[in-house]
Simulated scan of single mutants.
Amino acid sequence: MASTTSGDVLPSGSRIFTTVPDVFFIPEFVFGGLVWILVASSRVIPENPLGWVMFVSIFCFVGTTLWFFIFLCGANQSSIWPSLDVGFHFLAVVFFLSASVDLAYITYLKGVAFTAFPTAESLKLYRLDISAVVMSYVATLLYFLHTIFSAIRWKNS
């Protein structure tokens, strides 16, 4: 059976703004960047789980930026790129899901502490953490959808 992969399986240039999985690049930037900003603007206590959240959000933000520019410049025309696309976005889903769960748990613990000793500053930080949790799960959903549609495109290639 002959291979059906052709050189232009993936879109390049401005066509990435019109294809279904690649249209998720911009929302992934926005929501992943918001997670990064919101976690960085609150107190990073405890350091270990929130350090993982920061690593994941920065890693995925930089990775998505590089991936976006590779697609935009048209350097993705080899037959291995569809599988790399699925692999990168699957890794991002796994990373973001684990970071989201960690962030939600830490936010829950901060909420329990907030109810014991409520202050205006702790309320502000608690609201920032809740926003970060919501943005993190939205980013996870976006990366998941990108992975699913990339896998469909990879299977059809």
Rank of each mutant, 00 (worst) to 15 (best):
F29C: 09
H89D: 00
L145Q: 08
R127W: 12
S12R: 00
S98M: 11
V86E: 03
P82K: 03
R15F: 07
V133A: 09
F68Y: 13
W52T: 06
S100W: 04
Q77W: 13
L91T: 11
T19W: 01
F95L: 12
G7D: 01
F17H: 03
S83E: 14
S41N: 13
I37P: 09
V35Y: 06
C73A: 04
C60V: 08
F144H: 03
V56P: 01
F71D: 02
L123P: 11
E121I: 07
F144I: 01
V30N: 10
C60K: 04
Y126V: 02
T19L: 01
S12H: 08
W52K: 11
I152C: 11
F17T: 05
P118A: 03
Y137M: 06
N156D: 14
V112C: 05
F69T: 01
W36K: 04
S122F: 07
D102I: 01
F149M: 15
R15K: 08
F25V: 06
A75W: 08
T115A: 10
V23Y: 01
T18M: 06
V23P: 01
T64G: 09
L34P: 02
T107I: 09
R43L: 10
F95W: 07
S131N: 10
S42C: 07
E47C: 08
S42F: 07
S57P: 00
D8Q: 12
L109W: 08
W154T: 14
C73S: 07
A99N: 05
D22S: 15
F149S: 15
P46K: 10
F114Q: 11
I106H: 01
S122E: 12
G111A: 05
A151K: 06
S42L: 06
F61L: 15
D102Y: 12
I70R: 02
G63F: 03
Y105L: 12
S98E: 10
L72I: 00
L91G: 14
S12W: 13
L109N: 15
W81P: 00
I148D: 11
V93C: 12
I58W: 06
A2I: 00
I106C: 07
F69L: 09
T140R: 06
F117T: 15
W67S: 10
F117R: 12
G51L: 02
V101C: 06
L84P: 03
L72T: 02
P11G: 05
G74M: 01
A139T: 02
Y137L: 12
H146K: 14
D129R: 09
S6H: 09
S42Y: 09
G63T: 05
F144L: 14
A151G: 15
S98K: 04
H146I: 02
G33L: 05
V9T: 07
F55R: 05
R153Q: 13
L128C: 02
L128F: 13
Q77R: 14
H146S: 11
S131T: 03
V138L: 12
G63I: 02
G32M: 08
F68M: 01
S157C: 11
F25L: 13
F88D: 01
S41E: 14
N76C: 08
F95K: 04
S14H: 05
N76I: 00
I148L: 14
P118F: 03
W36N: 14
P46V: 00
T140N: 06
T4S: 10
A113K: 14
S83N: 10
A2P: 09
I58L: 10
V44M: 08
G32I: 02
A151M: 10
N76Q: 06
